[in-house]
Design a protein around this nucleic acid. Structure first.
Length: 265
DNA sequence: TTCCATGTTCCGCA
DNA sequence: TTGCGGAACATGGA
């Protein structure tokens, strides 16, 4: 679930729920997800403070604390956020729980324990440490930057779009969605794409992200011509009379339409 | 039971 | 030397 549109949805959720509420108590249930700091230190840095502002860089959600440091949440493949009042509503797999002054709780859950929780001094510090490229949905990330960045890659287009150090935010599912919509085969070498092709890919990335964020990253609400949420081989293509195929690209399961996504135009 | 999975990181090879 | 691709990681669900 958690690629850029999901994390942006989490960010907005946090803004209208736990933001500006004092954190009275902190429960760390899954210590292995806390990186670069001890459990005790994480608790100390959260307790008594509030999240006053949120940001997102790619798939990372950051919350500025009233102490002027930043809480970082990464959701791995199965992370989620839940805001609730009654203790019996506590979700399964809660890894970190913030008990707020209004008696509500914010739970960060992780089924597969692949995420990350930490404190950094600034969003820039996080980007530097993780070597994150610009957020693919940010205003600053222009079409020119996109084309120049992609040109540095010697690999195939899908893998390039997913490379977080080139641009951050797209994962396996949304990279497929973008290429599906723009009609480019995922294993097309970047060097075979001209500036016109790349410009179209850029426009499609922005449009797909805008649309899916609008629908709160819920595939059930996506337009019919999207195939996120319907990733299944041998299924009819929602855009043409073709059939959805599955392949392995850079070790990731990849879905594409064998008819309207040709390797060479 | 076996296989698969929306994440990142590490290692070997070209 | 640099960058790409595959494997590993942890764990639940189909």
């Amino acid at each position: 679930m958690p690629e850029l549109p999901d994390v942006e949805t989490f960010r907005r959720y946090l803004n209208r729920t736990a933001k500006n509420k004092r954190i009275d108590n902190v429960v760390v249930a899954t210590t292995s997800l806390v990186k670069d700091t001890s459990k005790a230190s994480l608790k100390r840095q959260l307790k008594g403070h509030r999240i006053t502002k949120t940001k997102r860089h790619g798939k990372y959600l950051l919350g500025r604390l009233s102490s002027d440091t930043w809480l970082v949440l990464h959701f791995g493949m199965t992370g989620d956020l839940q805001y609730y009042k009654s203790e019996e509503d506590e979700p399964d797999y809660t890894a970190l729980r913030l008990d707020l002054a209004n008696n509500y709780h914010l739970a960060y859950t992780s089924r597969r324990k692949l995420g990350e929780v930490r404190i950094v001094s600034s969003p820039d510090e996080l980007a530097e440490e993780k070597e994150l490229g610009p957020d693919v949905y940010s205003k600053q990330f222009s079409k020119r930057m996109f084309i120049d960045t992609v040109r540095r890659s010697r690999g195939v287009i899908k893998t390039t779009l997913m490379n977080q150090s080139m641009m951050s935010g797209l994962g396996n599912v949304y990279a497929d969605e973008v290429l599906f919509q723009v009609g480019v085969h995922p294993s097309t070498p970047v060097k075979k794409l001209d500036d016109g092709d790349l410009g179209k890919i850029y426009n499609t990335i922005r449009r797909v992200l805008r649309t899916t964020i609008t629908h709160k990253a819920d595939p059930d609400d996506f337009p019919r011509t999207y195939f996120t949420g319907k990733r299944e081989s041998n299924r009819a293509c929602p855009r043409c009379s073709g059939t959805i195929r599955k392949a392995q690209i850079s070790g990731r399961p990849t879905y594409y339409c064998s008819r309207h996504q040709k390797k060479n135009k």
